[in-house]
Structures are given as structure tokens and as C-alpha cells.
């Protein structure tokens, strides 16, 4: 067999998402990494394509009662309840911290009403951030608490409302708790989304049989981790075939091979979530592993791999 003669400097790992250039396709998933401050003791943030921050709202949210998490086989359930310090603290503390690094900043935004989202997105317009990621798995309090991301018309409407005021390109983060993920992707595309990311967590439940109650205080929570990866890969594949938007794929990525599955079915970017809890260095290991794969297989440009499995 012919051995590839590629070296590191022959490779192109850079990708564009909605006109924003990332040095490599690897980022971490919102909510698993804070704003990177704590993880920066373990990870050189300069090595990430982007840092995606924990969901932030226009005002502070206290989140859910504890226990907020439970371990499950090959995964976990979380019901943090989107606790966040509010945009003012976030803009004064977290954005200046991230600006010290040579990486892109993706701010994940949550809200309970359309007005909440618009308020937050407007305020972020004046901030030096690169992309916005809109978490539409939040319950819409004005529509009986059903998540914005569960009804196509509601998803399209919130996308259009956000796009109208956004100064940065908008990534709509899709919920997997729907009948047809392709339909949701088409809805946000119609609303004007610049990119999509998926999947958010799958709603699950765990019972603590010793305490004879729910393992997380919120009763239900979001399932994440390797256990959900096949579902996530399938959904990214479906969305890649349904819309003409760049995709950030996530759900159970623990290593380069996992990330490559997402890339090969059409993801331009990949995000590592729960795996950070098992090994805080996972993101950089994924970057290095993708590079090794490319050298081993004589792949010069990451674009040769994006969507190569039809």
C-alpha cells in the first residue's frame, strides 16, 4: 500500500460557517464548557475552531432545583434549567475573557418569549462575537410551554424575528424531540437561518429506585452522550439532504472517529459536549485525531470529507 506523504502543513482543516472562518471544524457544545474559563486550565482554547458559550438570556435565570443531573448507561440526563448570569454580566466578564484567544466566539441564546430572544440578540449586536446560536428547545411560555423548536411554524417565526434584528449570522439549534427533523430544518431555512446545529438533548427520564423517585428533580431531562450518537448522525444526514445550510453536528462525540461520522454525513462543524465531563481534553484530541486521519488517508482538505457519504 502506498503510504501518504502528507505532513501537517499540507493539510487544510479550516472551514467557513455562514461566512465566518474557523481554523478547524471542532468546537464544544453549549452548556458543557461554560464560557471556557474553567476548561482553559486543561485546554488551549486557541486550538478550538470556536468556543460556544452556555445559553444566556437577557436577564439572569436561577435554573432548576437539584439534583440536576443523573448518569445513565453511556450518557447522562441533565435538567440544569438554563441557569445563567444574564447578558450584562456575560458581556462584561465572559466576552472579554474569550477575546484573548485566537478562536471564534459563538454565543448560545435562550429565551422564554420571542421578546426575550429579540432583546438578547439586539444587545449582542454591539458585542464582538462572531455567530449567534439560538436554542429553540426552550419552552415558549406564551404558547403553553411547548418548545419553540417543536412546531415548524413557531420555529420559522422565531427564526425570522431573530434574523430581523441580528447583526451576526444566526445558527438555529434544532431539537431532536420532533417527528420530522427535516421539516424543522426546512422551517428555519424558510425563516432565514444562516446555519443549523443539531442535535440538542433527547428528552428522557431516570428513576432512582432506592429513593423511589425521579433521579433529577425536574422529573424529565435531556439525554446526551455516546448513547445518543447514532440518532444524532441519522438526523444530521437527514438535515443535510433537506436544506442548503451549513450544519454543526453534535451528539455523543468522544473522539475523532465519532466526529468524522458527522462530517461524512454532511456536517461542516462538530461539537463535543458530554465527553468533556469524562475528559476535559477531548476537543483537542478530536482536532489531533482528525489531522492524523487525514494524513493516514491522504486527505489534503477537510472538504473532501464533508458530506462524502451520501
Amino acid at each position: 500500500m502506498e503510504v501518504s506523504k502528507l505532513t501537517d502543513k499540507d493539510l487544510n482543516l479550516g472551514v467557513d460557517i455562514a461566512g465566518v472562518h474557523l481554523n478547524n471544524p471542532v468546537m464544544e457544545a453549549s452548556g458543557t464548557f461554560g464560557s471556557g474559563m474553567e476548561y482553559s486550565e486543561y485546554v488551549d482554547l486557541n486550538r478550538l475552531g470556536a468556543v460556544v458559550t452556555k445559553g444566556v438570556a437577557n436577564v439572569p435565570w436561577p435554573g432548576n432545583p437539584t439534583p440536576r443531573i443523573a448518569e445513565t448507561y453511556g450518557g447522562m440526563i441533565n435538567a440544569i434549567g438554563l441557569q445563567n448570569p444574564g447578558l450584562d454580566t456575560f458581556c462584561n466578564r465572559d466576552i472579554p475573557f474569550l477575546k484573548q484567544y485566537d478562536t471564534k466566539i459563538i454565543v448560545n441564546v435562550c429565551g422564554k418569549t420571542e421578546e426575550d430572544y429579540i432583546d438578547a440578540v439586539e444587545k449582542l449586536g454591539e458585542q464582538p462575537v462572531d455567530l449567534l446560536e439560538i436554542n429553540i428547545s426552550c419552552p415558549n411560555v406564551k404558547e403553553g410551554g411547548i418548545a419553540f423548536g417543536q412546531v415548524p411554524a413557531m420555529a420559522e417565526k422565531i427564526t425570522a424575528a431573530v434574523k430581523k434584528v441580528a447583526k451576526q449570522p444566526v445558527i438555529m439549534k434544532l431539537s431532536p424531540n420532533v417527528t420530522d427533523i427535516a421539516e424543522m430544518a426546512r422551517a428555519v431555512e424558510a425563516g432565514g437561518a444562516d446555519a443549523v446545529s443539531l442535535i440538542n438533548t433527547l428528552t428522557g427520564m431516570k428513576i432512582d429506585v432506592n429513593r423511589r423517585t425521579f433521579a433529577v428533580a425536574n422529573k424529565t431531562g435531556g439525554l446526551s452522550g455516546p448513547a445518543i450518537r447514532p440518532v444524532a448522525v441519522r438526523m444530521v444526514y437527514q438535515v443535510a439532504n433537506a436544506v442548503n445550510l451549513p450544519i454543526i453536528g453534535m451528539g455523543g462525540i468522544t473522539c475523532a472517529e465519532d466526529a468524522l461520522e458527522f462530517i461524512m454525513v454532511g456536517a461542516t462543524g462538530v461539537a463535543v459536549g458530554t465527553a468533556n465531563f469524562n475528559d476535559p481534553m477531548t476537543t483537542v484530541k478530536v482536532v489531533d485525531g482528525i489531522r492524523d486521519y487525514m494524513i493516514r488517508n491522504g486527505v489534503k482538505d477537510i472538504h473532501e470529507l464533508i458530506g462524502c457519504v451520501k
Binding site: G31, T32, F33, G34, M37, E38, Y39, E41, K54, P60, W61, P62, G63, T66, R68, I69, N78, I80, Q83, P85, G86, T89, N276, F277, P280
Partner: peptide
């Protein structure tokens, strides 16, 4: 996470916490 990033492990405080603003 065990290092302060995920907000899984919170307890109720009598004062507003500086990090969380709640």
C-alpha cells in the same frame, strides 16, 4: 464537570452569588 462549568452541582445561598448572579 467537577470544575465549575456545567452548573449541575449548585446549592442555595443566602446572598446573590457573584459568579451566577442568582
Amino acid at each position: 464537570c467537577g470544575i465549575g462549568a456545567c452548573l449541575a452541582c449548585v446549592c442555595k445561598t443566602t446572598h446573590k452569588d457573584e459568579h451566577s448572579q442568582v
